[in-house]
Write a protein that binds this DNA or RNA. Sequence first.
DNA 1: CAGTGGTCTAGACCACGTT
DNA 2: ACGTGGTCTAGACCACTGC
Lengths: 318, 318
Amino acid sequence: MWRDRTSRSDGRGGSGSWSSPRGRRGSLPVGCTTCVDGGSPRLGRARIGAGDGRTAYGRAAVVDGGARPGALYRKVAADLGREITEGAYGSGGRLPAEGELAERYGVSRGTVRQALSVLRADGLITSRRGTRRVVLRTSQVQSFGELLSFTRWARSIGEEPGSRIVRVENEERATAAEREQLRLAEDARVCRMVRVRSLSGRPVMVERTVYPEAVGALVAGLDEGAVSHTVRLEEQGVLFADAQHTVDLVRADEEDAELLGCRPGDPLLRERRRSTDPAGAPIEWSEDRYLPGTVAFTVHSSAAAGTLARRPGMPPSG
Amino acid sequence: MWRDRTSRSDGRGGSGSWSSPRGRRGSLPVGCTTCVDGGSPRLGRARIGAGDGRTAYGRAAVVDGGARPGALYRKVAADLGREITEGAYGSGGRLPAEGELAERYGVSRGTVRQALSVLRADGLITSRRGTRRVVLRTSQVQSFGELLSFTRWARSIGEEPGSRIVRVENEERATAAEREQLRLAEDARVCRMVRVRSLSGRPVMVERTVYPEAVGALVAGLDEGAVSHTVRLEEQGVLFADAQHTVDLVRADEEDAELLGCRPGDPLLRERRRSTDPAGAPIEWSEDRYLPGTVAFTVHSSAAAGTLARRPGMPPSG
DNA sequence: CAGTGGTCTAGACCACGTT
DNA sequence: ACGTGGTCTAGACCACTGC
């Protein structure tokens, strides 16, 4: 392992390389030794990188609520997650036992369990008493940032994101609905913004976002050409930690039709979203309307976590 | 607390009632004493019921992967979850500190943290270093069972579920797509079923489900009038543990239109789903098409868990 | 600086699945 | 009977928030 532990310098080492596949040594945490490979010879690939930005475990800008980025269990999770998505265990294959992993990584069983619970939450593996864990899927996990930021998402799928600001309303009095969504006081003001988002020049979505005044001030200060407001906001200390989404179907209104180049009444896939910062304070309320065929939303759900729900729909108004 | 612990019979007891709000004492786990209330006088409501079926924490038929139903942390989570959804801390309010909760419930800090992580996964609370946890929302969590079973969902929102079997194909050779989704061998056979689901007599959804042969045999054995196949399957030992969902928009084909009473080409909200059992084996692959305005899907996502993702869509084929 | 949650360890016992 | 994961405890230390 990369930490000095009693009887681990047994010279079993494989390549001894703990660098990421791209050769970046990354920021190994303080206190790391030169990493005598403690990896199991069975798989011989127990390297823990600093995260190469492709997996969602080594997140940067978007913060997990107070989680320590360099935590041991995150490195273990990142390493195992990479192995899984690379197909090292196959789809439906079995993971090594907790104890085995603890030995391989030179950490306690508790830490291994914490790592595995991350992978479980991401829907990569199952977990039940009596048997080893099983690989559920080998697909990459999409990061929270790619979910919230249209720009980051577009780039991640190899498309060029575009943004055209249609309308900005600054310091407007918040409506009752906005006050409730953003948890604002009676006399609060908000910033509203309407944008058309495009993929490689083709308009695909209309985005109508409402920000609380403080956040709106930052948004208003962005350059006209700033593509990703989310990224800019994060750079200025507005951190996105949680979001609640609702997906349904609506008909295009006059404005939608004009902006997206479709006809009024045409169906659109709608995603409404309320994002909150690590303190739980709402920082954004947004309604996105996508042309059909441009996106799909995928969710993993399990008996352990009730993140997805089906709700009664409103009768279509358009 | 309800367990005998050294210095806990301090007679601080409030009402001493550990029964649920409806007065059912419920099935307290073996080894429970008469529950000398160890609750904090601050809130004076530290009762842990057996779950009244409304919250998702005391789940019955649908299993969490090997989790013990009577676990301490689940009771604590159920109790805190109930308090939160009842508004005891308000929206945006702060929870008691971990240590305080540990004392109130007479458990270790680790157990409290396990309970809180359940609430966090459900999107009810935030969590960050340095400050107390904050209530994110006070809405009820929908159980996994209500998500997977149309019947259970309909009843939970006060509607009468209906089901009409349109077509059953038994022991059919699986297509390549079906083999991949259900992880079947080359020569495997499947059972296909098409149903129209209704709410209070009004058709709202077409459901096309494919089962592996073994599961299909059980489904075929159900009475014609069995409304919830999911529930029946669970009764026969087919347990649903995980599911992967994809939500997008499609156009009604000829059959859809006829079954739902709309016109071909009309937009429908589509949910595709692959469900797996606790061992990770696929047990169902389903495609549901809803009339607009009848449902919406909600998801909580956070920087900690990547359950929701946005994917590129296929160009509309209809 | 005090309070609070995040991380990690070590060990114990139990319940489940499989052989 | 054995291996495996689920649960619980007790304690230690650290990092962040907010006064």
